[in-house]
Amino acid sequence: MPLLEVTDLRTSFHTRNGVYRAVDGVSFTLAKGETLGLVGESGSGKSVTCYSLMGLVPQPPGRIESGTAMFDGTDLLHCSPAQARTIRGKRIAMIFQDPMTSLNPYLRIADQLIEPLLIHEKISRSEALARGLAMLEAVGINDAAQRLQAYPHEFSGGMRQRVMIAMALITRPEILIADEPTTALDVTVQAQILELIKKLQQEFQMAVIFVTHDLGVVSGLCDRVQVMYAGRIVETADTRTLFRAPRHPYTQALQRSIPSLQPKGRDLYTIPGLPPDLSEFNPGCAFASRCAAVTDRCHPTAPDLLAVSPTQATACLRVQAHEI
């Protein structure tokens, strides 16, 4: 049985300018201890998917239109706030992109770090502090005892992200949702944080949903990857298959437009056009207008995500018909 099973999640934002279907029918499962990459460009719905699971979508203007997310017998999307509180921040934790703004600048690191423990566990402050100290050491912060008394502004970006990770993992969650945790960091620091997440994941045996726009980050970290486009999952496969033999035209195009793979001096491959406007209803495949392999069939009906091999599923009519 999967640890988390999301079925037909639809989240939209009702604004004055219309309804934006940010997440438009997303289904996936996450196994225990698995690392799942969620890849896509801005606006593809990868962050909103995670926010929906964590109950962080502001409502209004956001609205979860349909779907279920089963975690250990509880539907995260429809459970009572009291039930949600026993799971969120304890059994499922999240870290965010910007370590500069996601810590409270007025609180000492110690107070923020042990807050989840004090809320979720019957534990004294001194015990909580001891565990906080151990956690801070586990994420590689030197002089942890002294740093506990520091304020966030005294830390660098990479150190703050380490504190965020310590805070998320202090309750030993079963799932860690990491929303672009290294995007705001320098490459050398990014490498450190990725190594840290990998190490802690093995130590704690937790599942990770890793959201990123950077395919390179995914390739070293994840067991399985899901590619999102315009609110839908267009392809999912184990990491090696996704990079070696992508089937969906969007995944292929995305990989081809990355500079490191291309010969120097020649023009980079580009995907023509722009991502679709999510406020306009589109019955067909969202990628059709930019797709090199488009046919007449692609416009009227949206393809479902169907298995094309035991480890790979693709939402493309032509791939499913074995035409490309």
């Binding site: 490459v187 490498a191 990725l194 390179g216 980050v217 070293g220 990079f243 990989q255 793979l261």
Partner: peptide, 25 residues
């Protein structure tokens, strides 16, 4: 810096020795 560039090839990425710098700039 070069070693920190994430490689697209998953096998290459996992096999190549990475030179992870300690500390911050």
């Amino acid at each position: 810096l070069v070693s920190a560039i994430p490689q697209l090839d998953p096998d290459l990425q996992r096999s190549k020795p990475r030179l992870v710098l300690a500390g911050d700039p």
